[in-house]
Design a binder for these strands. Structure first.
Length: 893
DNA sequence: GCGGACTGCTTACCT
DNA sequence: ACAGGTAAGCAGTCCGCG
């Protein structure tokens, strides 16, 4: 079946309209045929083969939850509407009798009925009877600016009540949960997992092989308790089920702009779309070009398998693009939410397309597709946790160019002219490359990005569209919410948690922070050979697990738990009942540490399984790394500062104990940060002693993370250089690796790094020092003689954290440079990178593109070189000034 | 009026 | 919209200095 579809596709070409009313008809292509065959909406038949739950929304027309299912054999999306009569609702502590007095509620057009329900209030830890207010549509509960049920109740009840109910405040719960999420939780549905439709009903589809793996995994956790095992099994099921083969298309559009440097406004959509490139997983590579007056053909060559299609009207071009958007189950863009899809949709409106001809749903921040699933890679790669933990900071700027270069080795094609001045082939080549990068960012490493999103969607119980656009705190919140519903716990309101458990007892070192964080050990300056780095694997999640931390368990109301104190704080933690966070985060941690991490490196496994496990362990890493921080984040729905504070306090306690024990065992501790200790030349027995003691006393694992052949410390914390056995070099925190420093200095630093990598013994150092001295002298002389390759080598590259006009307290140098650029008509925004050089005259900075060689302030660069090298030189017993040949007298002057 | 000591702002980093 | 801790450079302020 899939093969047939491909054949059909390959006949695709720009055919002339066939009917008289051709103008109103969609451009006829194989895609159009596919859409017509399928019909729209693409309703699931009464019996649908195994399909992936890829999206969920609320369908306003039918008033029902709508699930999009991706059937991986035909590679099509099917819509399934709820058939259980599930309705939106919220809870309140008012009784139906009391609620009936509220006219605005009873007369609300969206109000349906009341139900009485028994729930557990997790903050009181007791069963309560609450009223469930059921509504006809989700917007009636909340969402409209005024007059929705969640606001009416607290506003109106005090006025209609005759008796003061002062003993208990009026409360509403769970009114801010998106309807389709509520539906997912209540029906126990698992996004991105396999389902079937049987006799019109949605049922999960078990897979024999995956279930066997789940049991095997559960089997290795022999010492876990029943509750833990249950969660390990559920997580393992979510992670062991295979991912589908995705059918997707990457798209990029180019729009004419009268001012070449300015991006057209997608909401105005005033200018024509002149080119669209499409690159699909079924290997269709197309460039659609708009024919325009006075545009030349050009001489550029595109790859032979790229099909160039010319359109004599923009409307027809848009229709051809829409045919694609009506057919592909997954559409991938880079910034499509804010540009490509938004522009296309508004532009189509301008041409008078009917609503049902436009395949795009325009939201405030998101553009979704009526048929398939839109993934905006910009949003995904912008996610800091993804950037740092999933991709190890391999890309620095979230631009197609930088992400493309870093992850798939493809750069954008540089443009010297505006879009409007390009020849057809220049334009085609440029636009196609963007679609190609977008495609490859999706396809590389066997569709790693889509699989990562899929795994995160399963863990968090969110549709892929949401998980790819929202931050870690939402992912964690959602799996916590799922668990609350499963256990019939009322989801607490943030203000109620805070009122009961908002107090903090420690003082942060940094002004403006809420509580004290981790310990950083004062390093022992110098060069040290054979340094073992021991650390706690995922320390904070371990603490949350071992110490039973969670908003319910911290400062619980059992008097007998009050002696279970957290070190360094007056907080206590519950002994009687397991906290949800402790259970959920703890079981995820155990799965990563004991199964997915080791299995992802196990050469005995087939490569495809290993790579799948690697994706899973990466997804778990992202979530676990954030799992402590969210409790200290005001924006997190289960914000509970003492939980965060307790976690950090226990961490301080743990590392302090380890240091004490290490010293007792006669090991010198050279340095440590948060969860690690750097040990000087420890014996095997000493290491084993420390490991055993930690396991016994702290109930946590302490591992040798790595061993440095030697490490170089200055007196600065978070600043060191370590050379591993294999000669690779870890550089931490040194100026030489910071991305804002000029390339000129970075190159000199890297040269020193390479030289240090070759040092094997203390004796090797003497030669290395000589080379390093030479390297620095060389650099110094080149600066003095103004011998650099280009000015850009001297540029500092700094990100504008704010809009340039919003710096009011001070004017940092990079802002000065940005303001100079603005005078030249180039405007920079928050998040942009500005490149500037240091010059002699006021204001001492200049954007690199405006500066010339002889105005460079060479002495400033020498000072920078000095401070960059100092961080390493003093440990080596060298002195910058001496190296560059200044006498003591000269230095004084 | 000037320069050093000091504080605060900003960015980039570490765990 | 995860957290706190550290380094570095520069901007701006205060204060003493006859």
């Amino acid at each position: 079946m899939a093969q047939k579809r491909l054949d059909e596709f390959s006949t695709l070409k720009a055919e002339p309209p066939q009917k008289a009313e051709a103008e109103a008809l969609p451009f006829t292509t194989a895609l159009e045929k596919e859409k017509q065959q399928r019909g729209f909406p693409s309703l699931a038949p009464d019996n649908l083969p195994p399909s992936y739950f890829v999206s969920a929304t609320y369908n306003g027309k039918t008033g029902k939850a709508l699930i999009k299912l991706y059937e991986p054999v035909s590679c099509r999306i099917y819509f399934w509407h709820d058939n259980t009569g599930h309705k939106p609702y919220c809870y309140t502590n008012l009784s139906p009798l009391e609620l009936e007095k509220i006219d605005r509620l009873m007369n609300h057009p969206g109000f349906d009925h009341f139900e009485i329900e028994e729930k557990i209030d997790p903050l009181q830890d007791k069963t309560v009877s609450v009223t469930k207010i059921v509504a006809k549509d989700p917007l009636a509960i909340g969402g409209r600016p005024k007059g929705c049920i969640r606001d009416i109740i607290p506003e109106d009840f005090p006025r209609v009540s005759e008796v003061s109910m002062a003993s208990e405040a009026v409360k509403v719960w769970e009114a801010k949960i998106k309807y389709y999420q509520s539906y997912i939780y209540d029906r126990g549905l698992l996004p991105s997992m396999l389902y079937e439709v049987k006799n019109g009903s949605l049922v999960s589809k078990p897979l024999e092989e995956a279930e066997q793996m789940v049991q095997q995994i559960v089997g290795i956790f022999g010492d876990a308790d029943v509750e833990e095992l249950e969660h390990i099994e559920q997580w393992a099921r979510l992670l062991e089920y295979p991912a589908p083969k995705f059918r997707y298309v990457a798209m990029d559009i180019e729009v004419y702009s009268p001012i070449p440097t300015r991006m057209p406004d997608p909401r105005a959509a005033d200018y024509p779309i002149v080119c669209v490139s499409l690159y699909s997983s079924d290997d269709k590579k197309r460039v659609l070009l708009l024919k325009r007056e006075g545009i030349r053909e050009g001489v550029e060559r595109l790859p032979a398998d790229v099909k160039i299609e010319y359109f004599d009207s923009e409307e027809k071009l848009i229709r051809a693009v829409f045919d694609v958007l009506w057919v592909y189950p997954f559409v991938v863009t880079f910034n499509g939410d804010d540009f490509d899809l938004r522009y296309l949709a508004h532009r189509a409106e301008k041409f008078g397309f009917r609503r049902d001809e436009i395949p795009i749903e325009i939201g405030k921040r998101v553009c979704s597709l009526k048929y398939g699933v839109h993934i905006d890679l910009y949003k995904f790669f912008f996610n800091r946790s993804i950037q740092i933990y999933a991709f190890n900071n391999r890309y620095r700027d979230v631009t197609l160019s930088d992400v493309g270069k870093a992850l798939v080795g493809l750069d954008k094609i540089p443009l010297e002219k505006g879009i409007g001045e390009l020849t057809y082939t220049e334009l085609a080549k440029y636009c196609f490359r963007d679609a190609e990068i977008t495609y490859k960012l999706t396809s590389f490493e066997d569709e790693l990005v889509l699989k990562l999103i899929l795994v995160l969607a399963r863990i968090s119980s969110m549709p892929m569209e949401d998980v790819s656009r929202q931050g870690v705190s939402r992912w964690i919140r959602n799996f916590m919410h799922r668990e609350h519903r499963r256990r019939k716990l009322l989801i607490p309101n943030a203000e109620d948690i805070l009122a009961l458990k908002g107090k903090i007892a420690t003082k942060a070192i940094i002004k403006g922070k809420k509580y004290k964080g981790a310990i950083v050990v004062e390093p022992v300056p110098g060069v040290h050979f054979n340094v073992a780095v021991m650390d706690f694997p995922s320390l904070y999640p371990s603490i949350i697990k071992v110490w039973n931390l969670g908003y319910q368990s911290i400062l619980c109301n059992h008097p007998e738990c009050q002696t279970n104190l957290i070190p360094d704080t007056p907080h206590w933690v519950c002994r009687k009942k397991r906290a949800l966070e402790s259970l959920l985060i703890g079981s995820l941690r155990d799965l990563r540490v004991q199964w997915y991490k080791p299995k992802s490196k196990d050469k005995a496994l087939p490569a495809d399984i290993r790579s799948w496990y690697n994706i899973i362990q990466g997804a778990l890493k992202v979530i676990l790394n954030a799992s402590y921080g969210v409790f200290g984040a005001e924006t997190f729905d289960l914000y509970c500062p003492p939980v965060a504070e307790a976690t950090a306090a226990i961490g301080r306690h743990a590392i302090t104990q380890i240091i004490k024990k290490a010293e007792e065992l006669g090991i010198q501790v050279l340095y440590g940060d948060t969860d690690s200790v750097f040990l000087k030349n420890p014996s095997k027995e000493q290491i084993r002693g420390l490991e055993e003691w930690t396991e016994r006393k702290l109930k946590m694992g302490l591992d040798v993370d790595k061993v440095y052949r030697y490490a170089v410390f200055s007196s600065r914390k978070k600043n060191y250089l370590g050379v591993l056995e294999d000669g690779s070099v870890d550089v931490k925190g040194l100026t030489g690796k910071k991305r804002h420093i000029p390339l000129f200095i970075k190159k000199a630093f890297d040269k020193m790094k390479e030289r240090l990598a070759m040092v094997k013994t203390p004796a090797d150092f003497e030669k290395a020092k000589k080379d390093i001295i030479q390297n620095i002298r060389d650099c110094y002389m080149r600066l003095k003689r103004r011998e650099w390759e280009s000015l850009s080598e001297l540029a500092f590259n700094v990100v504008l954290g704010e809009e340039p006009e919003r710096y009011t307290k001070t004017t940092p140098q990079h802002v000065k440079a940005a303001r100079i650029l603005k005078e030249g008509g180039i405007e920079l925004k928050a998040g942009d990178l500005i490149s500037f050089v240091k010059v002699v005259n006021e204001p001492h900075v200049k954007p690199v593109e405006l500066a010339s060689k002889n105005e460079i302030d060479v002495d400033k660069y020498i000072a920078y070189l000095h401070s960059t090298f100092d961080q390493v030189l003093d440990a080596l017993g060298l002195d910058f000034d001496e190296i560059i040949g200044l006498t003591k007298l000269e230095r004084f002057m």
